[in-house]
């Protein structure tokens, strides 16, 4: 049994909210730099170079990469031998978000009720997903999610007979409909299998995976490569103004499913694909 103080969780979450909104992960920067070399459209190249400049300014002058600093999604992988001390874990996470968004000059983009729509004032509540895993560590991933791209995400409850072709169609349909709204170049998280909610969760998790690491299953890896090429052929381009850089990566996650179904969730993210991971 290992004891972790919940104020340690608060402090960690606070730092991660700030870090994620000011600095992208290395793989995302590499994707941007590489696409600048391969983009064929002059306006597309101009936009990609502005995005590079934007990342530099964000880091140097401490201005969030994007003004939509997102609704905060938190993945908690908790080792089953961990014991939390010092109060409510859930509240400790929310307090971390609250402090991170205040001290990090991040935008408060959350309304407390979807219909009444009053801003909660501190970006809480975060959306928290808990997983219990073996061991005595806690792995935390904080992923602030902007809604220009979130709003273009889709779920498709396909039939088994639709097969892999159905999956490809679903991905391309979602990306085509997202177009300029999702601030391309996009990153596409795809969840295949499970139930309705499991597919959605997988697709969100897929976005937090390093884009230089392919899916484990060979068919899923091939699907990632084929879809990235097909999406770039749509020529939506940077900012949706044309060009062959429509997406930086397609990340696929899979799970077992029911004999009668083939759920496919497509979680669309913009080029500001933010996530920060730490283990304590």
């Amino acid at each position: 049994m290992r004891t972790i103080q919940t104020n340690n969780i608060t402090e960690t979450i606070k730092e991660m909210c700030i870090e994620a909104n000011y600095f992208l992960t290395e793989d995302m920067k590499h994707r941007l730099d590489a696409s600048y070399q391969t983009e064929t459209d002059p306006l597309g190249r101009q936009i990609l170079s502005k995005l590079q400049e934007n990342l530099e300014i964000a880091a140097k002058d401490l201005i969030p990469i994007c003004q939509d600093t997102g609704m905060t999604v938190v993945f908690m992988e908790i080792g089953q031998d961990v014991h939390f001390e010092g109060g409510d874990l859930n509240e400790a996470i929310q307090e971390g978000v609250r402090r991170g968004y205040r001290e990090g000059y991040l935008r408060k983009s959350v309304v407390s009720d979807p219909i009444i729509r009053e801003n909660s004032g501190d970006n809480t509540p975060a959306v928290i997903h808990y997983d219990i895993v073996p061991g005595d560590r806690v792995k935390i991933t904080v992923a602030p999610k902007g809604f220009g791209s979130e709003s273009m995400s889709r779920i498709f409850m396909l039939k088994p007979a639709d097969g892999i072709e159905g999956v490809k169609n679903a991905i391309l349909t979602a990306v085509r409909d997202a177009g300029p709204n999702a601030c391309p170049p996009m990153v596409i998280g795809v969840g295949i299998g499970g139930t309705f909610e499991k597919a959605a969760l997988l697709s969100k998790k897929a976005l937090t995976r390093d884009t230089s690491v392919p899916a484990e299953k060979s068919w899923a890896k091939e699907l990632e490569e084929e879809m990235l090429a097909a999406i770039n052929e749509l020529m939506i381009g940077p900012a949706g103004l044309g060009g062959n850089t429509t997406a930086f990566a397609v990340n696929v996650e899979t799970y077992a499913t029911h004999i009668a179904g083939l759920p496919v969730a497509v979680n669309i993210c913009c080029h500001v694909n933010r996530h920060s991971t730490r283990t304590i």
Partner: peptide, 13 residues
């Protein structure tokens, strides 16, 4: 007009 989405740090300047 379109401004470049996701370039808020640059545009703020």
């Amino acid at each position: 007009f379109a401004a470049i989405g996701g370039a808020g740090a640059l545009l703020s300047k």
